[in-house]
Nucleic acid binder design. Structure first.
Length: 112
DNA sequence: TAGCTGACGCCCT
DNA sequence: CAGGGCGCCAGCT
């Protein structure tokens, strides 16, 4: 269960995001103790394919609720389709009711 | 070995 | 109100 690096920790948090909910790079970074390392989280998502388990990277967006990483998925709108398949509504690459669907690891899991 | 990059976020002008 | 710049940390060339 021990993690081998920062990326593994990010994956462990992302894996806990319930379907239909979304989190942000900054919130995850803050939960890991590095609020300024939001970029790292995005990079971890980019490398999420290295993890043996499927990482719901589509549930991680920026603080505005924008699907900034959609272009990194296989298809053009795979990220949006995955989110809509879970019940989330996406318009103009932005999650509708983002604040309502926002899943904050700090609030849900508690401060680390 | 050292430097640059990167799916972000916040402060300052 | 809008735009630009710096900080963050680990992996890659």
């Amino acid at each position: 269960m021990s993690d081998t690096g920062f990326f593994e920790r990010v994956y462990q948090v992302v894996l806990q995001i319930p379907p239909g909910r979304v989190s942000t790079y900054g919130a995850i970074a803050a939960y890991l103790g590095s609020p300024g390392a939001a970029r790292m989280v995005g990079w971890a998502m980019n490398q999420s394919h290295t993890h043996p388990e499927f990482i719901p990277a589509h549930r991680v967006v920026n603080r505005k609720g924008l699907l900034t990483g959609k272009h990194h998925f296989q298809g053009k709108n795979i990220m949006q389709e995955l989110l809509e398949n879970e019940g989330a509504l996406v318009v103009e690459n932005r999650i509708v009711n983002f604040e309502d669907l926002f899943w904050d690891p700090v609030r849900e899991l508690g401060l680390l």
